[in-house]
Simulated scan of single mutants.
Amino acid sequence: MTGQKHVVFDVVGTCVSFDAFYNGIDKVIGERLLARNITARSFGFTWMTAAELEFTFLSISERYKPYKEVMSALFFRTLYMMGVEDPRAFATEAERDQCAQGYSELELRPGTKDCFAKLRDAGFTVWCLTTGDTKRVRGYFERGGVDMPLENFISCDTAGVAKPALAAYRPALAQFKEEDAKWFAAAHMWDVTAAVKVGFRGAYCTVYEKESCAEIFDSELEVVEDTLPAMADKIIAASL
């Protein structure tokens, strides 16, 4: 293989887990949620998914807003959709902000450090493409003891286009030469298959979604593994 070797990672959900987010919700309003037969995990997932939906719709309609602003706005609506009839009597805006703070305290998945080390030892440059703000996202790596240079972060906030719009991936791809090995790695099937469509080679890890639901995606992925280190091994082997 001539040229340089690059792997662009999705971060939230792929390199970091959502456990701290769910645990934060549980500490703030967990008992009240359980009284209504709602777990902190189910509320957190629903809130996050609702925010991702509106974030994407705003982006598609050329009204891009940073994800954290969308997430804040969706808190009370999500409570209502889950059966809380009077959300603003159920929780305060201060409690909403406390719950959202958990999103800034996410921790690296076990294996992320090993995954990056394997790739770098094999001559790969590691990049991150994220819908989050760079400062927050870089903090995940700093707290986890993984070196991730600021210049290797690419944020959708800069381009004002959210993944999985193909335009969100093209600036990252355009940084590399035609002869380079260009991989995109993610634990979201929708993410990695969109990157493949613009020209990346795709690596998917099942650590988050467990079920790939491959039947609804059009792309053939070169690498599918259950752990991040195993995914790194396959990327290295496929790039020889």
Rank of each mutant, 00 (worst) to 15 (best):
L228Y: 02
D218Q: 14
T14V: 08
M81F: 14
T56W: 15
V192I: 05
Q4R: 14
S17F: 04
D86Q: 11
D157S: 04
C115R: 02
A186F: 08
V70S: 03
L34D: 09
D191M: 13
I60S: 09
L106I: 11
C205P: 04
G30T: 03
E151L: 01
G3W: 14
Y103L: 03
M81Q: 10
G132E: 06
E54G: 12
Y80D: 06
K197A: 05
T112C: 14
F184A: 05
H188G: 06
E85L: 10
V12P: 08
E222T: 11
M71G: 15
N152R: 12
K68D: 14
W190R: 04
T92S: 15
D147W: 04
T2P: 14
A167Q: 06
P229L: 06
H188D: 05
T14W: 00
G202W: 05
W190L: 04
V70N: 02
A162W: 00
K65M: 05
Y140S: 07
F153N: 00
K5I: 00
A159M: 12
A100D: 08
S61F: 09
E93M: 12
P171T: 02
C156K: 00
A117E: 07
D114Q: 11
Q98I: 10
A100I: 06
D86N: 15
L58K: 11
D157R: 11
E54P: 02
F45S: 13
S239E: 05
R109K: 12
R143V: 11
E69W: 06
I29K: 02
R41H: 15
A187C: 09
V8F: 05
R109P: 00
V16R: 00
R138W: 02
A194L: 07
M1N: 15
S212P: 12
P87S: 12
A20R: 07
A159V: 13
T125S: 15
L173K: 10
F176A: 02
Y140P: 07
S239I: 09
V70W: 00
A100P: 04
M189E: 10
F217G: 14
L119N: 07
